[in-house]
C-alpha cells in the first residue's frame, strides 16, 4: 500500500474526471456545503464573542475568565464534542457547526477583548472629555482602534473552522471531509489523497484571501507591520 505512484495517478485520474467535480455530491457541491457550514459557525461565534469581548474589554473585567477560556478550549478534543452532540440527538452537520463555533468563539473573544482594552487611553479620555457616552466610546473610538486585532482574530477563526468542518464527515455529515471518509471506507486511497489535498488547498486559499482582506480592513495609519 506504500506504492505512492499508483495512489498519485489514481488521485490525478479521479481529479481529471469532470463528473467528479460537477455530479450531485461532487467536489463543487461539497465545497459549497463546506463554506455554508463555515459561515454558519463563524457567524454564530462572532455574534456572541465579539459583543461579549467588546463589553469585557470596555469595562476591563474578566481577564481571568478570558485566559481560562483560551487554555481550556485547546485541551478539548473537537471530535469528542462532535460525537457527544451527535449522541444528544444533533447529527453530522449541526453537531459539527456547533462544535466549530464553540472552538472559534474563544479566539474571537480574546482578540476583541485585547483590542478594545488596549485602545489608547488618551483617545478614550479625549472622547469622554468631549461628552461621549459609554456606548459611543465603545462603538466610535475603541472598536475602530481594535479593528486590527479583531480582523486578525476573524482570519484565524475562519481558517480554523474551515479546517474543523471536515470532521463532520466522521459523524455522518457532509462537507469536503466526505471525500476522505468515503475513500477510506471504499479503500480508494487515490480519492483520500485527492480529498486531503483539496481540503488543504481550500484552507491555504482562504487564508491567503483573508490576509488581503485583513490588510484592506486595517485603516492605513494602523498598518505598521503587514502580516
Amino acid at each position: 500500500m506504500t506504492a505512492g505512484d499508483g495512489v498519485l495517478s489514481q488521485a490525478l485520474v479521479w481529479l481529471n474526471d469532470p463528473l467528479t467535480w460537477t455530479e450531485q455530491g461532487g467536489i463543487l457541491e461539497l465545497t459549497g456545503e463546506h463554506l455554508l457550514m463555515t459561515a454558519a459557525a463563524v457567524g454564530a461565534a462572532a455574534a456572541v464573542a465579539i459583543p461579549v469581548g467588546a463589553w469585557l474589554g470596555h469595562t476591563d473585567r474578566g481577564a481571568g475568565l478570558v485566559v481560562w477560556l483560551t487554555n481550556a478550549s485547546r485541551a478539548l478534543p473537537t471530535l469528542g464534542i462532535v460525537f457527544l452532540l451527535a449522541s444528544a440527538g444533533l447529527f453530522g452537520n449541526t453537531a459539527t457547526v456547533i462544535a466549530a463555533a464553540f472552538f472559534a468563539a474563544p479566539v474571537l473573544l480574546v482578540n476583541t477583548y485585547e483590542g478594545v482594552r488596549g485602545a489608547d487611553p488618551d483617545a478614550r479620555d479625549a472622547a469622554r472629555g468631549m461628552g461621549m457616552s459609554d456606548g459611543r466610546i465603545l462603538l466610535q473610538v475603541e472598536l475602530p482602534l481594535a479593528v486590527t486585532l479583531v480582523s486578525a482574530g476573524l482570519r484565524t477563526t475562519i481558517v480554523q473552522v474551515v479546517a474543523t468542518i471536515p470532521l463532520a464527515a466522521l459523524a455522518g455529515g457532509g462537507g469536503l471531509g466526505k471525500i476522505i471518509t468515503f475513500g477510506l471506507g471504499t479503500q480508494r486511497y487515490g480519492e483520500v489523497l485527492a480529498g486531503g489535498v483539496i481540503v488543504a488547498l481550500l484552507c491555504l486559499a482562504i487564508d491567503g484571501a483573508l490576509a488581503v482582506g485583513q490588510r484592506i480592513a486595517t485603516p492605513a495609519p494602523l498598518r505598521v507591520r503587514s502580516g
Binding site: I180, G183, V192, V199, C203
Partner: peptide
C-alpha cells in the same frame, strides 16, 4: 493544513 487533510 487541516489535520484531517494532512492525515489523508
Amino acid at each position: 493544513i487541516p489535520s484531517l487533510g494532512l492525515f489523508a
